[in-house]
């Protein structure tokens, strides 16, 4: 009797010691989060201040929303905001259907080896940085490059200056965006297609449904929840036009359509325009958060709560 009591006491002591030990586990990560994520959030105060480097964040004078007002009234900002929303919207409508189509086509392949090869190749561009892709695209779409060569072979008279004309620049952004992401984005749809019940397909075949009918009446309805979820979550990134891609492809001749919030914000940093730059960053963060939370809320309402991020 006595020994059991001592044992439980010892066990309790051991458990509380283990709980203290657990704190050590989270400590390094916690410190990193506080320093590199939460201190900068405190730095957002700069957006409401007339920031002077010498006075520091806390010592500078409050100016209310003055920084925001002057940013919104500036010549550049409306253009930058328009470009950002336009590019991200165009990217959404072009790059959203592509992986669904790719997944459906890959699913129809009967030869396993070919299927695997196509999949492996399609993911490859996703693992390259936009620096590398930008370098390759710059060469391929140049006036003497292979893209213009092929177009000329099909009878086009003059080279298209893809980097110098606004329309072609946007087209190039959309095309390279699809190629970079389509393979990787198709993974989630392929997984969803795997969950299609074989017996339903067999029943459809017995009823005389061809491939196309099987896709429309069996496969698409099954993966619809996934499609809706991905679509809504993509809506959450309205203000992310893809900084990495644009920065590694643009040049001064297309600034008029290619200058987005992130490139503008980077210029503000380089010009030491800290207060207004922080205001722009805060605007982007708040709008982004509202959209992500909104998208997540809608997803949770529509689906069974499992697909949302939180």
């Amino acid at each position: 009797m006595k020994s059991t009591k001592m044992k439980t006491g010892k066990k309790k002591f051991k458990i509380s010691l283990n709980r203290l030990e657990l704190l050590l586990f989270v400590l390094p990560g916690l410190i990193a989060l506080i320093i590199f994520n939460y201190l900068p959030m405190g730095g957002l105060l700069i957006a409401f201040k007339d920031y002077k480097i010498r006075a520091g964040i806390l010592g500078s004078d409050w100016v209310g929303f003055e920084n925001f007002v002057s940013v919104f009234k500036s010549m550049e900002f409306p253009r930058v905001l328009r470009n950002t929303v336009m590019i991200s919207f165009l990217k959404l409508i072009t790059s959203f259907p592509a992986p669904i189509i790719l997944a459906l086509l890959i699913n129809e392949l009967r030869c396993k080896a070919f299927k695997k090869t196509v999949q492996t190749i399609s993911y490859l561009p996703y693992f390259m940085s936009w620096v590398v892709l930008g370098g390759i695209v710059t060469m391929m779409f140049s006036t003497e490059g292979p893209v213009n060569f092929v177009l000329k072979a099909f009878g086009m008279k003059e080279s298209i200056i893809f980097f110098g004309e606004e329309f072609w620049f946007i087209v190039m952004l959309l095309v390279t965006n699809i190629i970079q992401g389509v393979g990787w984005s198709s993974v989630i749809y392929l997984a969803a297609i795997c969950s299609v019940d074989d017996s339903v397909i067999e029943a459809a075949v017995v009823d005389g449904a061809g491939r196309l009918k099987q896709i429309i009446h069996v496969i698409l309805p099954t993966i619809l929840p996934t499609i809706i979820t991905v679509f809504i979550l993509n809506l959450g990134s309205v203000l992310n036009a893809g900084f990495d891609q644009i920065y590694n492809l643009y040049n001064p001749t297309v600034y008029n359509v290619a200058d987005i919030i992130d490139t503008y914000n980077l210029r503000q940093l380089q010009q030491l325009d800290y207060a207004k730059g922080t205001a722009v960053g805060l605007f982007k963060s708040v709008v982004g958060m509202v959209f992500v939370l909104g998208a997540n809320y809608i997803t949770n309402k529509l689906t069974d709560k499992e697909m949302g991020i939180m």
Binding site: P40, G42, G43, I46, Y274, M310
Partner: peptide, 19 residues
């Protein structure tokens, strides 16, 4: 929460630079 909140909101380029 401290972890997940960083997915939703960030201090942005310039405050991070100053830190």
């Amino acid at each position: 929460f401290l972890l997940i909140f960083t997915m939703l909101f960030s201090g942005g380029t310039i405050p991070t630079y100053l830190i």
